[in-house]
């Protein structure tokens, strides 16, 4: 690891001005990606700005939608009783990230800003139609998460900007959802394909009111399968329509072939997992 200076501001304003002031400064949240990158010399910051001294971005609350501070840990989401009641699928996605040691440190803001195409929590937040708040020294803006990622490990964030909050619209609670990560192991895996499905349906009749499908690790960024969503929204959910949507979702992806899996296999997995995701939600809600 290269030498760096460590700065720990106690409020957001100080963090932002530090970010502006210092060249080659990196924001430090949970550190679970940042420190690994620094140890491998992929990342060589001269300054580390630790955000953990800023108290008001570490928790979440409901206020016309859910507002999650960027430094909320993955573990806080995983074990939150409120969230387990309101949006259990978010807890499920949190639960599948890394290990307990990682989840205790990793933050949602960090997970988003690291912008891994396979990021677990990012894929789920994308399905939830989330927005993010970005603050800089002279500006504050809210943008859709679907506009945030620009490629593997890259986002729209400019120098001097900080992602401070993730906002989940209030209607997210109306959905039933599921998160599936597929990898060769059961524990501690990164997904070959990740999928988040949110479904608002009349489970008696099988009518799909709204559906959102987000996919991870099958494109340079986590993506939404908008065409598949469009095919199903407002229509009946039957084996045929679900299969067609799965085919469509697969065609919307642009995966790479690497040593983890081939592009063709990832595309096949998308088909399987879209069907499985929808059916899992249907099966667990039909009787309830």
């Amino acid at each position: 690891m290269k030498n760096f200076d460590y700065i720990k501001p106690s409020n957001l304003a100080d963090a932002i001005s530090a970010l502006k002031e210092y060249e080659n400064a990196f924001l430090f949240a949970g550190g679970t990606d940042l420190l690994v990158g620094m140890k491998n010399n992929f990342l060589k910051p001269q300054y580390i700005i630790d955000l953990k001294g800023i108290s008001n971005i570490k928790s979440f609350e409901y206020q016309e939608g859910w507002h999650f501070g960027a430094l909320t840990t993955i573990r806080d989401i995983e074990v939150s009783e409120t969230l387990q009641q309101k949006m259990p699928f978010l807890c499920q996605a949190a639960s599948s990230l890394g290990s307990i040691q990682i989840r205790n440190r990793a933050t949602i803001g960090g997970n988003l800003c690291n912008a891994s195409p396979a990021a677990d929590i990012a894929t789920m937040f994308l399905a939830m139609d989330s927005q993010i708040k970005i603050i800089s020294i002279d500006n504050e803006k809210v943008v859709g998460l679907d506009k945030f990622f620009t490629g593997p490990n890259s986002t729209i964030l400019n120098r001097g900007e900080v992602l401070t909050e993730i906002i989940v619209p209030k209607d997210a609670e109306q959905f039933k959802g599921v998160y599936i990560k597929f990898g060769p192991r059961k524990g501690m895996d990164i997904g070959i394909v990740n999928i988040a499905v949110l479904l608002d349906a009349d489970f008696e009749s099988g009518l799909c009111k709204r559906i959102r499908i987000a996919l991870g690790a099958v494109a340079p960024t986590p993506i939404r399968a908008r065409q598949a969503e469009g095919l199903l929204s407002g229509n009946a959910l039957g084996p045929d329509s679900i299969n067609k949507a799965a085919e469509l979702a697969s065609s919307e992806t642009d995966p790479i072939s690497d040593f983890r899996a081939s592009a063709g296999y990832r595309k096949e997995l998308v088909k399987t997992l879209v069907v499985r995701g929808i059916n899992t939600i249907l099966a667990s809600n039909r009787n309830s």
């Binding site: 060769p184 192991r185 059961k186 524990g187 501690m188 895996d189 990164i190 983890r260």
Partner: peptide
């Protein structure tokens, strides 16, 4: 990426 088994596996 070199995947030895975890306790879940």
């Amino acid at each position: 990426d070199y995947k030895i088994l975890t306790i879940k596996d």
